[in-house]
């Protein structure tokens, strides 16, 4: 869990790191901490997984991944965990989750994101997933994104 100082550090960095030569010192000054404490806390949050990573968050469209397909699968409950692990291990799948169905509107319980420079590339990847799932898959769909409506990432209040 996090304390108030960690929380202040999250609020100060969730929009991005300062683009100055000594960004952790700049944060320290802003938060009235020492730079060593800022760096130590960030390292600890990285170790505990509160920070997944530090770096550039690209806009997929802008770097050429113009086709983004959320592939969704209705997989037999008994097999979904075993098959989900195999789908998640495919190198072209960027996220893979088991989620609840919302019947009758939504019969799918396995979600896997695929990206490509074209829809053909995405659908070829979906075909590979389909063959791994075999008879355990009853139906499927690909939902392509056509517009990013918002991508701010986490924003907790100060």
């Amino acid at each position: 869990m996090i304390d108030d100082t960690d929380r202040a550090l999250i609020v100060a960095t969730q929009g991005g790191l300062p683009l100055v030569p000594r960004p952790y010192h700049a944060l320290a000054e802003q938060l009235a901490l020492s730079a060593d404490e800022v760096m130590h806390r960030l390292k600890t949050m990285l170790e505990t997984g509160i920070i997944r990573r530090i770096g550039a968050v690209p806009n997929h469209y802008a770097i050429g991944w113009t086709a983004n397909g959320m592939t969704v699968w209705d997989v037999a409950d008994k097999q979904v965990d075993e098959l989900g692990a195999r789908i998640g291990a495919l190198d072209f799948v960027t996220h893979c989750y088991r989620r609840p169905r919302a019947l009758p509107a939504w019969p799918y319980n396995l979600f896997a994101m695929v990206h490509g420079a074209s829809r053909d590339e995405c659908s070829a990847k979906a075909t590979e997933i389909r063959s791994l799932l075999g008879d355990a898959c009853r139906q499927s769909d690909i939902l392509y994104s056509t517009k990013i409506l918002k991508k701010s990432g986490l924003r907790i209040g100060s």
């Binding site: 869990m1 996090i2 960690d6 999250i10 960095t13 969730q14 929009g15 991005g16 790191l17 683009l19 100055v20 030569p21 960030l42 949050m45 505990t48 997984g49 509160i50 920070i51 997944r52 990573r53 530090i54 770096g55 550039a56 968050v57 690209p58 806009n59 802008a62 770097i63 991508k151 701010s152 990432g153 986490l154 907790i156």
Partner: peptide, 25 residues
């Protein structure tokens, strides 16, 4: 630093910094 600023301004990057896992907090 200049290139990161430009990549952010051009929206090639949506952000540069830590990515948090809110479930962990």
């Amino acid at each position: 630093l200049q290139r990161l600023q430009q990549l952010l301004a051009d929206k090639v990057l949506t952000r540069f910094g830590p990515m948090f896992q809110i479930e962990e907090m």
